[in-house]
Design a protein around this nucleic acid. Sequence first.
DNA 1: TTGTACGCGTTATCAA
DNA 2: TTGATAACGCGTACAA
Lengths: 334, 334
Amino acid sequence: MSKQPTVSDIARLAHVSPSTVSRVLTGSSRVHPAKSAAVRAAIEQLNFRPNLTARALSLGKSMVIGILTQSMMSQFYGELAQGIEEGLAGSGYQGVFASGHWESLDEQAALDILLARQVDGLIVLGGYHPDIDLRAINKQIPLIAVGRHIEGLEEHCIRVENASGSFQAVRHLIDLGHRRIAHISGIPSHLDACERQRGYTEALTSAGLAVDERLIVEGNFTEQSGLLALETLLARGSHFTAIFAANDQMAYGIRLGLYRRGLRVPDDISLVGFDDLLGSVYTTPPLTTVRQSMLEQGRQAACGLLRLLANEPPALPSITTELVIRETTARVRG
Amino acid sequence: MSKQPTVSDIARLAHVSPSTVSRVLTGSSRVHPAKSAAVRAAIEQLNFRPNLTARALSLGKSMVIGILTQSMMSQFYGELAQGIEEGLAGSGYQGVFASGHWESLDEQAALDILLARQVDGLIVLGGYHPDIDLRAINKQIPLIAVGRHIEGLEEHCIRVENASGSFQAVRHLIDLGHRRIAHISGIPSHLDACERQRGYTEALTSAGLAVDERLIVEGNFTEQSGLLALETLLARGSHFTAIFAANDQMAYGIRLGLYRRGLRVPDDISLVGFDDLLGSVYTTPPLTTVRQSMLEQGRQAACGLLRLLANEPPALPSITTELVIRETTARVRG
DNA sequence: TTGTACGCGTTATCAA
DNA sequence: TTGATAACGCGTACAA
């Protein structure tokens, strides 16, 4: 249990001063090759690791990016996290995750910890945290949001072309002959949810179909809520031949509900999701869905943040969406 | 962009010394109520947050737990991570994740970062890192492993009753009348994989059934490998009516392969997985699998580490397994 | 090119 | 009960 060696230990062993050791560590200035070699040897010998905590304190930069997420467990946030990691790779910055569990208090606590740890930047994944607070934080450290909107900070939010994706999805169903298409929507306070519903509505009206409010049920993006929404929908007794869910997770729940009812997909009911989570290829049958690469969004968020840290504009691109047709959709039975 | 306030700022505003501020912050010793109130007021007024980096340097304790994981994206690690977070909650310790992506180099780099950040403890999730290194690290800081075995550090590894779970699963298939049961195994260097295969073998032999090597195919725990293994199995042409996969992810891949071949589950082939990932309820039909709560393992790992940090023995319990029967298994067709 | 001295923000020790 | 001082490990002016 001997203590970790410090620069001083290395300096002593290499017969140089601590500052010289620091110089070879950071490469901040030229040092004599011989001394440099001696230092390297000493570092090797003592298996020395610079203490990043001390370095952070000295530099006033922690080189860590805080990521405020909601759940470590969902596929959705997992893919996002993976993308962020990829985007940060090689930048010298490390990502640190803290989760809010979709609870205001936890989210506040997680954010506090991140800020107290002196993160150099912040990526906010969804969540309920008030816009005003986030705007205030953005004055202190650069901030990027994905999966949510922040009033007045639009340039710092990854934008997804939700409406066009929804439109394509519903259009696809219409092309297959479906006329009674239900929609399980997301949380209405969520911009993405609104836009997806808008795409649904527009596709219907542009095809001359009426929007039937009885075919629209609200969910909250979880599998559970999808299943529940399906029950509600069936209980209403309105006829329909296809369902467009505002995200894949709800589509999974709906799929289970249909299975339990003995309704076949796509023979009896066609089903479309949104997100194209990795798991959507492995459902049975594989899910037709709208791709909005979460990996790509994570990467873009990370890169945008790195640009902000370099005092450049975030220059976040708009994320395009693309309908991926798999086996949960079929021509409506005559 | 004004700088963050420090204890000195608070001290000045409250007309006390920095030490006193520190005292009310940590509660390390009594302070006059009036002064204490003044300090609190100043903290509130300036919205002060103690700099955890500085505190860590001063204390020699970072209050962070490093978690060396392999992928942020898979459901498997997601659930584990969630459990760890829950186990750490309220302890004052924060978890920091770094992923190795199943690559030696990345894993080494991730570990280096964690150690350089002066983590107070380490949780290793799976991975290839050599036992000898981990034993060395354990001499410096407490360490717990989950999803892997470390020679000589058995007390620090979460043990799962793999064999008994496998046994139950295969026994269940036998009870349903299956006689030709295939097994898609995991990486043979992985202890869990071996034990699960052992349970499979024992269930067969204890029922007086022969173990047919032609019905055993090796996978690597990914969905992809499950699909591939199924192809191999089918190509061999041996007859079978059920498949026991060494984990759920491979079962998903197998399920897709069967679907593509037009083989119905469970009508033509029964399928059993291992893990009971959250997604396994939402496959169609829901997957019969062996539960080894990942959440529980994460929690136990965290609690064990906290005990180590308190200089107590880790006292890690053995994780029990339980067969969860869902709709992917059925009586063999006469 | 190298070494000395100081600062980063906090806590612990000690003396008052 | 309080305040001054030193220390944590590192980077960097500044002087040599």
